[in-house]
Structures are given as C-alpha cells and as structure tokens.
Write a protein that binds this DNA or RNA. Structure first.
Lengths: 230, 230, 230, 230
DNA sequence: GATGAATGAGAATTCATTCAT
DNA sequence: AATGAATGAATTCTCATTCAT
C-alpha cells in the first residue's frame, strides 16, 4: 500500500510517477519490469520508490488494484442498473469491459499481465486477489440470473462461473487477433484506434448466443440431461 | 535441439537430467528457471548443459516439444479412432488430456507455464508454436464437426475455435480449484493423487452440455444415447 | 562514455578506480583484461562498474580516449608552436611522445596495446579511431612540410605518412630493447627509470637523419628517379 | 613440437588437420582461436589434438614455425644468390615476401597475427622467436651491406635494422590499404586476387628510394643502373 | 523527504584440457 | 591411437534494495 508520503505528494508528481509505473508494468511482466526504468521515466530518485511503497511488490499491488478499480468502476458506471436480463447484463458488462480495454490500453495491458502472471512468490497473492474479485463479480451475476430464471436452476454454478469468467477474460485474445489490435503498441503510442462498437458487438453476439443456448432454461428443447446419461 | 551428445547419453543420466530440467521449468517460468539449479539437482557439471543443448532457450524448446508430444500422443492413443460425433470426440479429448495432466503433473505444469509464458524474445516463438498447434487441432475437429452436421453450419468458426480452445485450456484452473489439486505440489512431491475419473467426467459433462446446447443444430436435437460411451 | 555518476564520484575514488582500470588494460589486452580484477584492485563492488560505464567496452573506450588525450595534449604542450622546420618539428614530436611514454608507462602501455589490439568486433572501432587520429596528425605535418619545401614535392604522400607513422609508433620497440626498458615492469612497479634525454635524443638523431636524407629535397644529389629505371 | 604420433599420421589426415589449424589461427588471434573449431573443421576428435601436440600453445608454436619456414624458404629460393647490392637485395626480399603473402594469405595472416599478438604468457615466446629470426635475417643483410660499401659505415646498425624490419613488416598495412586487399577475406575464400607485380614494385620503389637516400653513402652516390633488376 | 551511489548474490555462458572407454 | 563427454573456474553483466548524505 502506498505510504502517506506518497499520498501527500504533489498531485503532478504523484501522477507522473503513477503513469511511468503503469507504462512499465503494462509493457513488461513483473519480473521484467524495471524499477530503474520507472524512476528514469518519472524523473525521480530511486530511493523515493521505497519511501512511497514497500518495494516493487507493493507498488505492483497498488497498480493492479488501481487498474481493477478503474475498470470495474467504468463498467459499473456504464451498465444501466435497470438492465434486467442476465444475458443482456452480461453482454453489456463484457462490451463495456472491452471498450474500457481499447480506450485504456495501459490499464488493460497491466491487468492482462497480472491475470496471466506466472505465479511466483512475489505475484501469487496479487493474481489470486484479482481473480477472486472477478470470480465474485461473475458469481453475483450468475446467482441473480438463476434467481430471475434467466439461467437454468440446475446449473453447476461453479462451472458456469468458470466458463463465463474464462471466456470473458480470454476474449481479449480473440479480439486482438480478429481486429489485429496490439495492446502493447497502443501503450507505446499512448493510445490506439479502438475497434468500432458494431464490430465489437458482433463478436459479443456470438459469445452471448453460445451462452444463452448453453445456459438458459430449455424452451422447449434441447437434450434433456436425463436422456443423455440414459 | 538436443545434440547427439545428449541423445547418446546413458539412459540413466539422460533421464536424470531431463527430470531435473522438467522439474525446474515446471516449477518456474522461463525467466525464473535457473540452469544452475538444474545442474545442481542433476548432479552434473554446468558446462555439460551446453554440450547437450545450445543454451537455455534451446533446452526449453526441447522440453516443451517433448511435453507436447507426450500429451498429444497420449490423447491420440486414448481416443478411439471410431468415435464419430464431434461432442463425444471433444469430450474424450479433453478427458484424456486432463487425465494426462493429473498423472503427469510435471509435463502438465510445464505446458501450462509455456502457454501463459509472458512473451519475451526468448519464449515468444515457443509459446506461439504451442498455441498454433492446439488451435489447429481444435480447428480440425470443428471443421469435421460442421461437415458431419454435429455443429451448426452458420457458426463463426473462428469464434467457435477460440471458445473451445480457451475452455479446454483453462479447464485446468477449474479442476485445480474444484478438486483442490495443486500441480506444483504434485511436482514437488513427485506425483499427486489424481482426480477420480467419475468426478472428472462429471465436470466434462457440464462442459460438453454447455457446448452441445450452444453449438449444435437445433433439430432434431440431441445426441442419440448410444453415441455416448458406446 | 562515463556516466555522470562516475564523473561526480569523489576524486579519490574515481582515481582509484581509474588507476586500477588503467593498470589492467596496460598489462592485458582487451580480451584478457578482467573486470573482476579491476574491482578487486579498486576495492569496489562489481555492480559499480556498470553504474560508471556501459560495460567493459565502454570502459575501454574511455581509457583509450583518456590516454590519447593526455599524450597528444602533452606533446602539443611541449612542442613550441614556432618550431618551423618539418624535421625539427617531427623530432620534437617524437621526442616528447617518447618522454611521455617513459614517464607515463601505464598510459603508454595501454595505447600500445590498443594500437596492436587484435581486431575483434569489440575493439575494432577503438583501434581504427586511434590509428586514424595519428595518421591525420602525421598527414598534417607532411602537408605542411611539403608546402614549406622541407619535403620533396614529388613525394608519394600516402607512403610518406605510412613510413613516418610506423617508424614513430614502432620506435617504442627499438627504445625498449636498446635501453632495456620494460613498460610492463614499469607499470607493475608503478613507474620506471626513464631513459636520459640525451640517449633518447641520440636515437632520434638517427631517425631524423634517415628521414631527412630520405625525404628532403635533393641538394644537389641523389639518384634522379629517371636514371634508376633507365 | 609435434609428437611422433602426429608425424606418423597418414599424410592426408595430417594435412587436413594442419590446414584447419592454419585457417583458424589465420582468422583469429591466439586467444580467440578455438580448438573446438579446428577439430570440427578437420573432422577429428578433440582428444587427438592433445596426442599430436602438448596443447594449444604447442600447436601454435608449430604452425608459426611452419609458416615462417615456408616464407623464408620461398624468399631464399626466389632471390638470386648473385644479386649483390644491398638495396636491390632488400627490394627483392621484400618483393618476394609480399608476393608470398598475397599468394599464401593463410600463412601470411598467421604470421601477421603472430607478429602483433598481445604478449601474454602463452604467446610471448613464439612472438619473440619470430621477431628474433627476422631481425637476424635483416642484420645479416645490413652487415653485408656495410661491408660492401652499400650502406654508410657510420650507421647505427641496431637502428638501421630496426627501421628496415619495421618498415618491411608494416608494409603489409600500407599495401592492404592501398590495394584494398583483405587477407582475412582471402583466407575465407581460399585465395585472393594478388596485387599485380608492377603495382607492388611501384610501392617498393618508394620504400627503397627512401632507404637508399637515407642509408647509402653520399658519394659517389646512386645505384648504378645495372644493379637494378640485373 | 529526497537522493542516488553502493551493493553482491546470482544469472548464462565459454573452452582448454583431461581421461575413461 | 582415437575418442568425445565431462569438467569447473572464469567470464561479463543485472537489479532490487539499502542507507549515508
């Protein structure tokens, strides 16, 4: 956690530092990220980092938390509270999540790195926490979806949460490839040309279609589970 | 590629070295893996590594290739050639893949690390190749599935391949959590207690159910009972 | 180039390091010189070298540049500007160069090593630059000498420059042998007993005599070129 | 010195090895030359080198000796015994030496490397021996030249020998540059396009002219035309 | 509070030489 | 006599962290 020293820093300096640190962890994984590069880019003394944070690990935790809060906040602020259906809610959540990613490539890249960070002793906690938060978020959606009858009541909730989470997260890979969008390039250039909403929504249609067919209650169709194991 | 020196090594020594190297790359990502630790564990001279391989990178490539071949070979040998339906084929593929993982935690862990390795100049090629091979495999299944009418003809194939690949790969996370199985612990202990086939199959039922509903044609519907485990 | 860190080092430490590094490169060629030995001798941490310089190569460049500047500076400061004749100017240049060598065996040895350094990728540039600077210096003298009529107008300038340069540079070998002076011993002992000026000048008389007869305009004598090939 | 094992080797194998070793030391200085590369190129076992020679150092001594004998032998065989005048003899010596170099770039490059080899404990002896042989050769010429009255009787013989030796040896640099001839390229290609005799002789004219003016007695002066190329 | 030089354990890699087969 | 795998000390270089100023 940032020290009070950091919090009391002049806004400009604090932001300059944060920007440099975000850049670094957006472009490099934890091990490869260099404290030296950060201080060089931020124009501050190396020792200062250790007056602001407990060390590299602590700084990393702060940045990941920051990025997650921003992204979740953005999504929460963008998905209208009265959108009721599970699938529509999910679609909008992922849609605004993706829009956030494209318009905030630095934060998105950082979160992506954190998600897939090889779990050494230094990063395990952060990754786990990040994943836990996301899982909890999805689980909330699923629970509500079941209650509302949008999802089959007999779903294995853990499995459903897993599938929804993984597809949402890894969707970035699919989008990246499909639209030839490079997050790292976008970071280096300080922003990229986001994918048009329509194109993005088309992919989301595929995703939601898969999930709706897969997870919604039967009407009236598909294979009754009891037949399958008969 | 291993030198002939390595290939001609006495079986025992070669395996001792390979075991130590697999251990190292199963427990650490590329950057963190240490050649020094490997030679210490294998009880050989440091210089020998460079008589066997071109360097750390080459050793890594060899190990990943080895693991991938073993896993794909195991799957190919376990899934009967005459299993025709897409979903059943997919289920068995993932099932035997997971069984392989549980019984070969070292190789599984290595492959997992390689899949999510942060893409630096040294590992990019290996990761990309690994991913490409998997994608191609899945794409083959999907193409056949569409031709056979097991999958809807109007599917966005790229999207379907993406979803199938990601869910298969990340299924490991789900299994890990659900069955409290730690691959790294299993590696450290030299083997773990695999998940019972029935429990594993139960999860696969969830997965295949999702996919079948999501990707199969609407009518005449469902998998004839005899297809399953026939 | 040295970093500002190095430039801002306390004089004593900077000189201690420089001395150790000069010693090392005076006693060993580039390949054989060891950064580890330098830090051991200077009593600093290994990492510090890389805070001061970009690496071994950069350190080497710095030292050679330093030595060359010192030597050229010394010569420039010792040869009176109003010495007009080519041969006298040349004599004094070589004389003071040799005096510099004898009184600064460490720098002299370093420059000598650099001059004859086997041209690998790391040292090629430095050696070439050093040679180019010397050649240019000599060429300047020769051009002026021709304009002043001290040298024959029909000289092959390239050849003359070559001969003057090589004899000046290799004169060190001759002096070394004639006066049983070992530069390396002098370096190891931290200074040697220089050759008396008179003895040194006697050798220079021989050199200048050879060159004067060989390169000065005919008076009235020697063999007209057209006779020779007749 | 080569062991009897080496001497008794089948001609073809012995020559294959020698060729590979010459190549290596022609293209690299002592330190950089690699025993491994030699055995790879020669297609023999590494251990064999140590049955043929005492080690790298001994092998090096053998090769330098070999090259020197070939070059001196070539010169001796090419300069007619009855060429009497000092300068003509010197000219022819250097001329045939240079021709040897251009037509035997491998041996020439090796000798050149040996001449300028940084004097570490391993190479010092070889370099010194090579230099001593050349000096002795030149000294013989000079002594005879003085006796014959071709050189001034009051010459400082040591100095004269030095000057003649250094200019002869370093002439290679001048030729290299003037004719854009790269010995290493010639070695790599297995032979180069030698410089035409006339062009070579033109440079030698400059050299001999300098020396004749510089070292010959003043009267009656010049080389009787019949001496030249008689 | 800011500074930034110092630290030093650890990384990957090299290569002449040895010696059991 | 030939082999070629094994050796291991030595190399250059990295970088998060500390602490005296």
């Amino acid at each position: 956690m940032p020290t009070t020293t950091f919090q009391q820093l002049p806004r400009e300096k604090r932001e300059r530092f944060t920007a440099a640190a975000l850049d670094e962890f957006a472009l490099h994984d934890y091990r490869t990220a260099s404290v030296s590069r950060i201080v060089r880019a931020a124009g501050i003394a190396k020792g200062s980092v250790y007056q602001y944070f407990d060390g590299k690990q602590d700084l990393y935790l702060h940045l990941v938390t920051l990025a997650a809060e921003r992204k979740f906040g953005f999504i929460d602020g963008s998905v209208p509270a009265d959108v009721g259906g599970f699938f529509e809610r999910f679609r909008l959540t992922v849609f605004h999540g993706a829009r956030f990613d494209f318009t905030h490539p630095r934060l998105a890249s950082l979160l992506y790195n954190a998600t897939y960070e090889p779990s050494g002793p230094e990063t395990r906690a952060v990754s786990a926490q990040l994943k836990a938060a996301s899982y909890q978020y999805v689980r909330g959606l699923v629970d509500a979806g079941i209650r509302a009858g949008d999802l089959r009541a007999d779903l294995d909730v853990d499995f459903a949460v897993f599938a929804l989470y993984q597809l949402s997260v890894s969707l970035r890979d699919h989008l990246t490839e499909r639209f030839s969008f490079s997050f790292k390039d976008a970071v280096r250039r300080g922003g990229g040309s986001p994918v048009p909403d329509d194109d993005l929504m088309a992919v989301l249609d595929d995703l939601v279609d898969l999930l709706r067919r897969g997870l919604a209650p039967n009407r009236p169709i598909p294979p009754p589970p009891e037949e399958r194991r008969a």
